[in-house]
Structure formats: structure tokens, C-alpha cells
Simulated assay, not measured.
Amino acid sequence: MVSLIVAHANQNVIGFNGDMPWHLPSDLKNLKNLTEGNTIVMGRKTLETLQKPLPNRKNVVLTRNKDFKFDGVEIIHDIDEIKNLEGRIFIFGGSNVYKQTMHLVDEMFITKIHETFAGDTFFPEYDVTEWEIEEITPGVVDEKNKYAHEFMHLTRKL
């Protein structure tokens, strides 16, 4: 099974100037809970934004750059190699990796942030009617989590 995890704001914004335009600790906690002990697949730019592999999970980078190396990260050069990875796999971004792998995804974990931000990086458009809504959990807005948000779990309709 291939899963996808993303946080996006209105207009499917996921980034601006190489970073996320919001700070939402509850989303980071959700991300950690879902992906720890599993495999995350990301593009080179996403890894460079993080500056280091995420701990307690297998970090895999999908890149066309045959010379790319990074300590603590497995490198793959072809989308077809994703199916050879072991364990539960989460597509982790960025925008190009999401676009290239959407057809492989069986389920999506989406943190939908009900806010409009300036953005230059976007999650691909998706038709929610092609997905079963398994769960929608409202996020708590408080002094640390300033934006209205919800956690969605969608599975692809057969």
C-alpha cells in the first residue's frame, strides 16, 4: 500500500520560497504519529528544505540526479522503484513528487488548513469524488495552532 501525506492550505498551497508558509504543531505531531517506523519518499528539494533526514523512519529521495548523495538517505531514480520499497510507504512531497506519484496512491492523509497564504508550490488538484472519506477530524485552534484545520483520511475508490 502506498500512502500520501500532505498539509495544504486554500488553493492547495503547500509552500512559499522553499518553506511552509504556516506553523502548525498539531500537523507536525500528526505527521510524526503516522510516519514514524515507516518509509517516507520525497524529492531532493524537500530533503534540502528539511536539511536532514527525519528520525525514526526510512528516508528515501526520488531524484533524477544520478550523482546525488546524502547521509542517512536511500536514493532512487525511478518512480517504479517505489514498489520495491519495504513496509508502509508515505509519499512525502514536494509538488513534483506528488504529481508523479498520485496514480500509485491508495490512501491520502491530508491536513487541510482553512486559510489563504501566498504560495509558489502547490499540491496537485484532486477530485474528492474519486476517494472515500474514511475520517475527518477537526483540528484544535489554540495559542500554538492558530489556523482552523482538519485531518482527513481518504482511500481511493475501487
Rank of each mutant, 00 (worst) to 15 (best):
W131A: 07
L104C: 03
F16E: 13
V61K: 03
K29F: 10
N56V: 08
I82D: 02
L54N: 02
T111H: 00
N33K: 13
K112Q: 12
I75T: 11
P25K: 09
Q100I: 10
H103L: 10
F68H: 07
F16K: 13
D127C: 14
D106F: 03
T101N: 03
E48S: 04
V41P: 00
R57G: 01
L158P: 12
V13Y: 00
H103I: 12
H103Y: 11
W22I: 11
K69N: 15
E81V: 05
I113W: 03
L24T: 00
M42K: 06
N56G: 05
K29T: 14
P25C: 09
W22S: 04
E115F: 11
G139A: 09
V105C: 03
E134M: 15
E130N: 14
K112P: 09
T116A: 12
M102A: 08
K83E: 13
A148Q: 15
T155I: 11
N59E: 05
Y98T: 12
F90K: 02
I91E: 08
D19G: 13
S95L: 07
Y147K: 05
K112M: 12
E150W: 04
L31P: 08
T46D: 05
K29P: 01
P25Y: 07
S95Q: 11
T121S: 10
G87T: 05
F123E: 04
Y98L: 11
Y147A: 08
V141H: 05
I91C: 04
D142G: 06
F68P: 06
G43C: 01
F122T: 11
N59Q: 06
V97S: 01
T155V: 12
P124L: 08
M108L: 14
D120R: 07
E48Y: 01
R64K: 09
L31W: 10
V73R: 07
D106W: 08
F68I: 12
G94T: 05
H8A: 11
R57I: 05
V97F: 02
S3C: 15
P53A: 12
D71F: 09
I75K: 03
E107F: 02
G139F: 07
H77A: 09
M152Y: 13
G94Y: 01
T111S: 07
G15D: 00
T129A: 14
H103P: 07
F68S: 09
D127Y: 11
T46Q: 04
Y147M: 09
Y126D: 10
I113M: 03
P21M: 06
N59Y: 03
R44Q: 08
Q100A: 12
L31H: 07
P124Q: 08
G94H: 00
H77R: 12
M1P: 11
N38P: 07
N10G: 13
I136W: 06
E115M: 14
R64Y: 02
M1H: 13
D120Y: 05
H149A: 01
G18H: 07
K66H: 13
Y147V: 10
I91H: 02
N10D: 14
D106M: 09
V6P: 00
E150L: 11
L85Y: 05
V73T: 08
